[in-house]
Simulated scan of single mutants.
Amino acid sequence: MKNTFKKEVQQGLDANPKTLPSKYFYDEKGDALFVKIMNSPEYYLTRCEFDIFKNKTQELINSFDIQKDSYFELIELGAGDGLKTKELLKVLVNKKYNFDYLPIDISSNALSLLKEDLKTEIPDLSIKTQQGDYFEVLDSLKTSKKPKVILFLGSNIGNMNDELASKFIYNLGTNLNLGDKLLLGVDLIKSKEIVGPAYNDSKGVTAKFNLNLLDRINKELDGNFDIKQFKHQPEYDEKEGIAKSFIMSTANQSIEIKAIDKTYHFAKGEKIHTEISRKYNDELIQKIITDTDFSLKTKIMDSKAYFADYILNRN
């Protein structure tokens, strides 16, 4: 893992403009900061999708085209703490639908915690955790031919550019059978007054989360970033519909990273691009699925129409 981190940090800082991969936000400190972000008043995304799962649960179930007496597999990509999914699982179990819940995650620890929690909250739930890469696990499951409903929530697809998102959905389709469903949770394009604060909260938690990348490089790759000489720089283009996060140098400076055996020079105002968060509308979703095996079945929004769960049908 450390060698991959070193390699990808070097590739990103060697590039012009400089970049760092957003996946490295998530160490122990980063995980804790992200939980704080999700609970901040400005970060509407989690609350809006929870609203859908809590208040439009039957509408979601109806969109899956499943019968109570017909077995299906409910598969979630990157389940996390299962906060939103629990609302759906409770109703499916209470109404005696015949299914197994298969959360997929790269972290065996996250899956163990989730399984323990669900066994307490929903004791009658049949849960079969799947540890590994999404596509490797799905490939091993596709031979079953049982109907499948895939959940990909939290607008995680928005961390990819449109070309990668299209490839990702295409690859999902190759692991599914005719009639299977994909629930794709996405953040909708809105005004900068709403979107901007979600990535730049008043307490500065998002700033700490972004700058934690430099802390990781200092600790794990023996870098000498002076965090006080950099700042969190969020940007949102309402017309483009993409929120971007940068780390900006506030001075002309040189940074040594001993594990890479290189010194990097930063001009005052120079930015490192760390993350994108794509926002969507119907037109963009249609464009992304054009060359995939999916068609748009329905769209379910929260009460504020900030967020949407698109239900896609595998053709």
Rank of each mutant, 00 (worst) to 15 (best):
K86E: 12
K145S: 13
D309T: 10
L114D: 05
L141F: 06
N200M: 08
G269Q: 07
Y44V: 01
D261P: 12
N177W: 10
Q67T: 03
K84V: 01
A267F: 14
D133G: 01
N212F: 06
T174G: 15
S144T: 14
K84A: 01
F135H: 10
G78A: 08
D215Y: 13
I247C: 10
E240M: 13
K258I: 13
V93H: 05
L92V: 02
L60V: 05
E28N: 13
Y264I: 07
K95V: 00
P21V: 05
Y101C: 06
N315S: 14
K219W: 11
L312G: 02
S166Q: 11
T292K: 06
K299I: 08
T19E: 11
V149R: 01
Y43G: 01
D27C: 05
D27S: 02
S63T: 03
K96D: 12
K203Q: 15
I217Y: 07
D302F: 03
N109K: 14
S40C: 07
I106M: 04
D31M: 07
D27Q: 01
Q130K: 13
V9R: 02
D133H: 07
F294V: 02
L20N: 04
L88G: 04
E270K: 06
E116Y: 08
F50K: 02
F152S: 04
I300P: 01
N98M: 00
I157Q: 03
G12Y: 05
E235F: 14
I242A: 10
N212H: 06
K36F: 00
G132T: 07
D124N: 14
P234D: 09
P197N: 06
E220Y: 14
F152C: 05
R216F: 09
L92A: 02
L118H: 06
A198W: 05
Q131K: 14
I127A: 06
G173Y: 08
T298Y: 02
D51E: 02
L164Q: 14
N161G: 06
I150E: 03
F294I: 04
S70D: 12
S249M: 08
T250E: 12
M160A: 11
H265Q: 15
L114Q: 05
S126H: 12
M160T: 09
L211C: 09
T57H: 03
F209P: 04
T4L: 15
K258F: 13
I311F: 02
E220S: 14
T263Y: 08
L172P: 10
N98R: 03
A207F: 05
F152W: 05
R216K: 14
L138G: 07
A251Q: 15
